[in-house]
Amino acid sequence: MPKLHIRTEINGEPAEFLAEPHQTLLDALRNELGLTGTKEGCGTGDCGACSVTFDGQLVCSCLVLAAEAEGARIGTVEGLASGEALHPLQQKFLEHAALQCGVCTPGFLVAAKALLDRNPDPDERTVRYALAGNLCRCTGYDKIIRAVLDAAAELRGEPA
């Protein structure tokens, strides 16, 4: 079967690539487009390491076909920082030591941004449930939750 020609938008920029019909969006991002910031922990939708936004919705890119990206807007971890400045979530993850190995971090950042985009003032419980689809085996989540709450406060313009 011939490859499909996909035109999409990634992190605000137009992108096109060729994909096998059965290829996942995760695989296309990593292996066709070289965007390896999005990680694969399971390939079955159970770990959240591959989290991206798809037309603004948080999805597991390992469960989306690359062909579905045609005409869509995809957001990945590579699009979080702007120029020289880290996104407040990225900065707070660093300040709170919210990563140990860091392989789960891109997924957490994308999922946390999706949460804060729709709910700028979540409480701890809300953050915990919103990130329950993202596995981290290193941190026990404590510092991740604190980093997200702190980033939310900063984004709301509250003094630290």
Binding site: L86, L94, L99, G102
Partner: peptide, 14 residues
Amino acid sequence: GAEKVTGRANFGAD
């Protein structure tokens, strides 16, 4: 840290 929060760090499969 900066490499890891921006997705630039290269892990085994990258």
